[in-house]
């Protein structure tokens, strides 16, 4: 018995293929269902009568049909009657999966399933990049933005004169010997007007705000991902 029906090839009872054309599988399928017109059906019938291969295909189609019929569950026979409550009900009846008892988790699952993992990863990478940038540039916290020069130096302005300062200056020795006037200018010791260039730059204020926001968003995404995971596990348990 042949296992594959090859359109265009005929298989005899001896298993030898001849160049005689067999109808395509779809034509045999249509013939099986009685969906061919009379002339075409007669042609196929005449061919099938002398073709073991096509007969085998038709036998298989019969077998599949019977298998499908005997394996289909017996349909319910309970009577259906809609009540006024049924037709007033706005909640969809179609709920094949038992609802999760955790309402917030379910809501989050529905809304954000495809995006939470990706967003969390992107936010985490951004945050790592920013923090790494801060560490490399020697920045040490809010209020003291990155320096325009390398190392732990900072720029201050005393009476309009920009001065390069070191880490020690900011730690308490501000304005002492460690301070170096820039471009050969001399610091005015009598001046009380001292301001940090980095503190006055609004860009770095926004940078800090952005960082803080990113941290909040990342935390939110992590919580969402955890709730979502818990919700999925709960739903799986309910289905089981």
């Amino acid at each position: 018995m042949n296992d594959e029906h090859n359109p265009g090839q005929h298989q005899t009872a001896e298993g030898q293929r001849s160049p005689r054309d067999c109808p395509p599988f779809e034509t045999l399928s249509l013939f099986f269902d009685g969906e061919l017109d009379a002339a075409e059906a007669a042609k196929v019938e005449a061919h099938v009568a002398s073709c073991d291969s096509c007969q085998a295909v038709l036998d298989d189609l019969r077998l599949i049909r019977q298998a499908l019929r005997v394996s289909t569950p017996v349909a319910s026979t309970r009577p259906f009657r809609l009540t006024p409550d049924d037709v007033r009900e706005t909640r969809p009846v179609l709920q094949p999966v038992k609802p999760d008892t955790s309402a917030p988790a379910r809501r989050l699952t529905r809304l954000t399933i495809p995006y939470v993992p990706a967003l969390t990863a992107v936010a985490a990478l951004l945050l790592i990049a920013i923090i790494a940038g801060d560490v490399i540039s020697g920045d040490d916290g809010p209020g003291s933005g990155p320096t325009p020069t390398a190392g732990a130096a900072d720029v201050i302005v005393i009476d309009g004169t920009p001065i390069l300062t070191t880490e020690e200056d900011r730690d308490g020795n501000f304005g002492a010997a460690a301070s170096t006037p820039m471009s050969g200018q001399t610091a005015n010791d009598g001046s009380e007007s001292i301001e940090s260039a980095s503190k006055s730059d609004p860009f770095w204020d926004w940078w800090r705000i952005g960082e803080a926001l990113l941290i909040v968003i990342l935390l939110g995404l992590l919580v969402t991902a955890l709730l979502q995971r818990r919700s999925r596990r709960s739903a799986s348990r309910n289905r089981a």
Binding site: P73, A75, R78, F80
Partner: peptide, 20 residues
């Protein structure tokens, strides 16, 4: 519904939903 879904109990729910 039973033939498509292959589940008699689920088919009942879907049929009820279809009637509504």
């Amino acid at each position: 519904c039973t033939g498509i879904l292959r589940d008699a109990s689920l088919a009942e729910d879907v049929a009820q939903d279809a009637f509504i």
